[in-house]
Design a binder for these strands. Structure first.
Lengths: 137, 137
DNA sequence: ATTTATTTGCAACATTATTGCAAATAATGT
DNA sequence: ACATTATTTGCAATAATGTTGCAAATAAAT
């Protein structure tokens, strides 16, 4: 029924106003969100600290994952079903639009295998592509 | 002869102690450097602000580029010859070792082409792989 | 409904980044 | 080599961002 409650319950999290609201933001958002986006979109009704802790909790539970950026910010996006607590498997491409500045998870674009030199062992791979998105073209 | 001066002159930059020292760090380093690394490796002989401005200048001139990270830090690494001012073409893989925490540019590993959905136009691609490097294996 | 566990917000603090401006240094022209 | 001009640096002040402890508020359990 209510997807929000479902996700929170599945992860054994207390149902609170803040968590519901922030999770809702992620469900509604097509792309990724930064801490600042969340503060803005909640009219600062939640303390800065609460937002930090909520995001941290969500990451730990595998509800969201963070996306690499080239500036000093952290972007978060919803994980798909195949993410479990502590183990993120988001092997999809992240796209940053130079025009509208949004970050989008391209869930359908699969990252090809990369052959590493001898001695290197891969655990995680992140692919970030920037350019113009389909809405700004 | 002196690679340092050569690079600075090519980019029409004044030759200063700080720029020489910081550029030298990059030339010596096998991997990427964060702001904090630079402060540490110069014994804080340069003001924090100077380091920020030097890095910014180097990025603008295409001497270094920044590498995406999932924490809120910025990593910088030397650009190869095919980088011009404002146009970075570092189509190689960046490797972050979970053990020694170093970031290494794998210049020989070429990034395979990724097919994007309709409407998306690629300008830049960054691939960051984490795991265990060849020295820590 | 009461107790217990968890979460929130405040305050204080720590770290990281940015800006203006005067002093110091580098480049330029003679 | 020296004076002039342009650039760069460091300091100070400020802003932005992230962290921690603790009491009050809220949610969950009995």
């Amino acid at each position: 029924m209510d997807q929000l409650l479902d996700i929170l319950k599945k992860n054994q999290l207390s149902i609170t106003e803040g968590r519901k609201k922030i999770l809702e933001l992620f469900l509604k958002s097509p792309g990724a969100l930064a801490h600042a986006d969340i503060e803005k979109n909640t009219d600062a009704s939640y303390d800065r600290v609460t937002v930090y802790r909520t995001l941290q909790t969500f990451v730990e539970k595998g509800i969201i994952h963070n996306i690499p950026t080239t500036d000093n910010s952290i972007l978060y996006a919803l994980c798909k079903d195949n993410c479990e607590a502590g183990h993120h498997h988001d092997n999809h491409v992240h796209f940053i639009c130079d025009s509208c500045d949004k970050t989008i998870c391209l869930d359908n674009v699969i990252i090809p295998e990369v052959k590493l030199p001898k001695g290197f062992k891969q655990k995680q791979i992140d692919v970030v592509i920037s350019g113009i998105c389909d809405e700004c073209k």
